[in-house]
Amino acid sequence: MKSVALAFLGLLLFAMPAGANDTRTFNAMVALANRGDAEAQYHVGMMHNNGIGTQQDRSQAFEWFQKSAAANDPLGAYKLGCYYDGQGAGVIATDADQALKYKLVAANAGYARAQHDVALMYDRQGNSEEALKWWKLAGDQGLPEALFGLSRAYSAGKGTPRDLSLSYAYFKLAKVPAKNVNEMASMLSKPELEKAEKMVAEWKPQPTALTLKAFAGFTAAEDHLKAAKSQAF
């Protein structure tokens, strides 16, 4: 039965004209999602959320994110958390506890944006140590917002001893305007600046596979369909 469903999925992928790519992808994704594929359920939710291949419908998106999260897809859990965090206005009431719960699922799975969001939520709660931990994980992946959060934390000594060298390094890595970088550099001693510049020169972002998939967006959806199709034959 599974092979028949996946074969049908393959037909959907190639049966529509080239100008209907988004609709073709949406229909094929729904077919896969209805078979219980958690990642496909997330992609269907995103397509409803963004109006890709179908009319924008955030109520439908929310339902698909619920299904995806229930089936343990971390990106589905993240988007469900976003809806509870205010993106679902008019669909679901804001609920900070639910937002944190679901975003933590994705953060623990390695998604950089979820880690940054979790850091912000802990920071608002006054839990600076926990915020710093999650900003560091997201910053190590190269997320500019998280790098900026780290810079602010080290500058203010929030959750960590104050360290202007680290603050400057993360500030520069966050790709802020050069004028602001130069202004901050002038506040450091020569040894502090040398230490920071060495860190910047040696630093390399290390995004996880989950982060790369999330940032790939629609391309990741198409890749998932191709992978499902290859398993059908």
Rank of each mutant, 00 (worst) to 15 (best):
A112D: 12
A232W: 08
D85Y: 08
T211H: 04
P161D: 12
G110L: 07
V181T: 10
P74A: 04
E194L: 12
L75D: 11
T160N: 08
W64K: 07
R152F: 09
L143T: 02
H43K: 06
Q56L: 13
R124S: 05
A28R: 02
L132E: 01
G149I: 10
G142E: 00
A178Q: 11
D117V: 02
G157L: 06
R35Q: 13
G139T: 13
K204G: 05
L210C: 03
W203M: 01
A89C: 05
L12R: 02
K136W: 10
K2I: 13
L143G: 04
F148V: 09
L80C: 09
M29C: 05
A109H: 05
M184V: 14
Q125Y: 11
L150Y: 10
N72Y: 12
L100K: 09
L75E: 12
T54L: 06
L120F: 11
A156E: 15
A131E: 01
G81N: 00
S68R: 00
L212P: 03
A107N: 03
Q56I: 09
G36R: 02
K133G: 13
K198A: 10
Y154P: 00
Q41V: 04
F171V: 03
G36D: 01
L164Q: 10
P205D: 10
Y42D: 03
T219D: 15
K213I: 03
A28C: 05
H48M: 03
G86M: 02
A221Q: 07
N108E: 15
A106R: 00
V30A: 08
L104C: 04
F148N: 05
Q206A: 15
K198T: 15
A146Y: 00
L11Q: 13
E202V: 15
V91S: 00
Y111M: 08
W134T: 08
A99R: 03
Q60S: 13
Q206E: 07
M199Q: 08
E39F: 13
K133Y: 14
V181A: 12
E222I: 13
N27A: 12
L12W: 07
M1A: 15
M121L: 12
K226M: 10
D223T: 01
N27Q: 09
L164S: 11
S68W: 00
M199L: 14
N50H: 14
G45K: 01
K213R: 08
Q56E: 14
G19M: 06
T25F: 10
R162L: 09
T25P: 04
H48A: 06
F171R: 06
A69Y: 07
T211W: 02
R124H: 08
Q66F: 06
L150N: 09
Y83I: 07
N21A: 15
K67M: 05
G10K: 04
A227S: 08
L137V: 15
A69D: 04
L80P: 13
M46I: 12
D95N: 10
F171T: 04
A7F: 08
A93T: 13
K79S: 14
